[in-house]
């Protein structure tokens, strides 16, 4: 998807890989598994430093990793955006679905896929964090947040063929 928009992509597995990129996507997957890899390869401090200046987008499991607080069950995180994430809130695979979604800054609704999605909520401002901005809601419930150049969304966009959000991310 990003390649079709003219962006060069690298799979980041080590801090050396991270040094070669100017923006980072924490993709969907299993946050528990991804967290183990981040720890094993010392990527946590490196990503925290990276996100101070560079755009970062956490998608589904990636949003869980980026959140300030992770619940059900609680889990360590990168603490990059002032939101909480309830893992597997919407149940198992049985409760997954696709829906059109209106996003702030985009003219047309995108097709969002919720797959074992987490529940994301804004946390009150703290010493280190102002409030995160809501970019999209589904039935009142926020599903997409931005804070500075950090994004977190509970849905997937990498599975369809709509690239409008990716274009927006490349402009951050």
């Amino acid at each position: 998807m990003l390649s079709s928009l003219g962006a060069e992509t690298v799979r980041v597995r080590t801090t050396d890989d991270l040094a070669t990129v100017d923006r980072l996507i924490l993709p969907g997957g299993e946050s528990t598994t991804m967290l183990r890899f981040l720890k094993l390869y010392d990527l946590i401090p490196a990503i925290q430093e990276f996100a101070k200046t560079q755009p970062l987008w956490g998608i589904c499991a990636g949003a869980i990793l980026a959140a300030r607080e992770v619940l059900t069950p609680s889990q360590e995180s990168l603490n990059l955006i002032n939101i909480s994430a309830h893992r597997n809130f919407y149940g198992s695979q049985l409760e997954s679905f696709t829906t059109p979604l209106t996003v702030l800054g985009l003219t047309n609704p995108i097709s969002a896929q919720f797959i074992r999605a987490p529940l994301l909520n804004a946390l009150p401002p703290s010493e280190h964090f102002s409030s995160a901005e809501v970019l999209a809601r589904l039935d009142q419930q926020p599903v997409f947040f931005a804070q500075g150049k950090t994004w977190a969304c509970s849905f997937h966009v990498e599975l369809g063929d709509d690239s409008s959000l990716h274009e927006l991310f490349l402009k951050l």
Binding site: G29, E30, Y90, F97, Q113, L159, G160
Partner: peptide, 26 residues
Amino acid sequence: MTQKNGTSADPFEIKVGLAKMLCNGV
């Protein structure tokens, strides 16, 4: 998540979606 009003679902696409989330894992 129960399906909301006005949403369309391609069940097969979603199923393959979870399969794709498992790629690279064990």
